[in-house]
Write a protein that binds this DNA or RNA. Structure first.
Length: 326
DNA sequence: CTCGAACA
DNA sequence: TGTTCGAGG
């Protein structure tokens, strides 16, 4: 869909990790877990990260391997979990569910004709963030004393809100929607090896001579997770149209186009369901032994899969002294 | 989401 | 030149 259109418009700059040392980042937990699981941990079909009763907990490996990245650069993550799913997102979720079911059927077929490699490849696409995955992630974060909060609705919106309020320095997500939710600064690619990317809302607005409200309108015209965009409108044309007509409604009128629930979608970005009722401590004192027991004994993850991760966490505690962050 | 190819 | 579409992660 048209979400990537925003990349074309966004003011993005690479930043070395040294430059963001000491930053507090509100991490979109869903986005982070998903990215980590698909790129680094490789959700597998062979059951390595599955308990005897068949529960998939690859997330625990992801968390243990992913946290050192923050610790080693003195970055404090505050994980933000999603709350209730917006009705408007249901269409998108239906699409994903359909894709997942298709992949499951294809995987079954591949397995039946004896193509194990193909079956494994397809099964990797059928994974989703289960309740267990989210809950065990919370429990592990608690043991490691890493702060997390619950969003009333979209985690993305809540992270943006915290950044806007100045309670964190950045929203952390791959999703360009962060811009539409009004996050002043967003960090992207915090999981990957190389430099991270900083996305700047003010600079984006300035570069295209748009107000924040107009940028939201441009995003909606191109399409978001919450609405289908207008056919034929990509980033360039949408900006041109907003300049010409002023706002979303005028553009739709002029082109004789319509978007389902436009007002609700706009409202969702401009006045999202978020809370100010959060608090977190950035001084961390992780209980590494308890965390290791939780992962290895309670959830049956092979000890060597997480050994290096825990080692790195331990090293950052003793070397930089996590509990000295305040 | 990202990339690359096809297409007005 | 900008948008769409499909495959892969």
């Amino acid at each position: 869909m048209g979400n990537a259109a925003l990349r074309e418009l966004a003011a993005i700059e690479e930043v070395p990790f040294e430059e963001i040392s000491g930053a507090v980042v509100a991490i979109d937990a869903h986005n982070w877990l998903y990215r980590y699981l698909t790129t680094t941990v490789k959700w597998t079909a062979d059951g390595v990260y599955t308990t005897a009763d068949g529960t998939e907990v690859a997330n625990l490996v992801g968390v243990v391997q992913g946290l050192p990245k923050f610790f080693e650069h003195d970055i404090v993550p505050v994980f933000v979990f999603d709350g209730v799913v917006t009705d408007l997102k249901e269409a998108e979720i239906d699409d994903r569910r359909a894709a997942k079911e298709r992949a499951e059927a294809e995987a079954r077929a591949a397995r039946e004709r004896g193509d194990r490699v193909e079956a494994a490849r397809l099964e990797a696409r059928t994974q989703s963030l289960t309740e267990t995955i989210q809950q065990t992630t919370r429990e592990l974060l608690e043991l490691l004393d890493v702060p997390y909060i619950e969003a009333p609705a979209e985690g993305e919106a809540q992270a943006a809100h915290m950044a806007k309020a100045g309670d964190v320095d950045y929203a952390g997500t791959e999703d360009y929607d962060a811009l539409l939710f009004g996050a002043p600064l967003t960090l992207r690619q915090i999981t990957s090896k190389g430099d991270s990317e900083r996305m700047d809302l003010e600079a984006t607005l300035a570069a295209h001579e748009l107000t924040y409200e107009q940028l939201v309108d441009v995003g909606i015209l191109c399409g978001t997770d919450f609405n289908e965009g207008v056919h034929g409108l990509g980033p360039k044309t949408a900006v041109k149209a907003i300049h010409e007509h002023g706002d979303l409604m005028s553009v739709l009128d002029a082109r004789n186009a319509a978007i389902d629930d436009v007002e609700s979608v706009r409202e969702l970005f401009l006045d999202p369901d978020v809370t100010d009722d959060y608090g977190f401590d950035t001084a961390l004192s992780p209980d590494i032994e308890a965390a290791r027991t939780f992962v290895v004994e309670d959830w049956e993850i092979p000890a060597d899969e997480v050994a290096r991760g825990f080692e790195r966490i331990e090293e950052s505690v003793t070397q930089t002294g996590l509990d000295q962050w305040t």
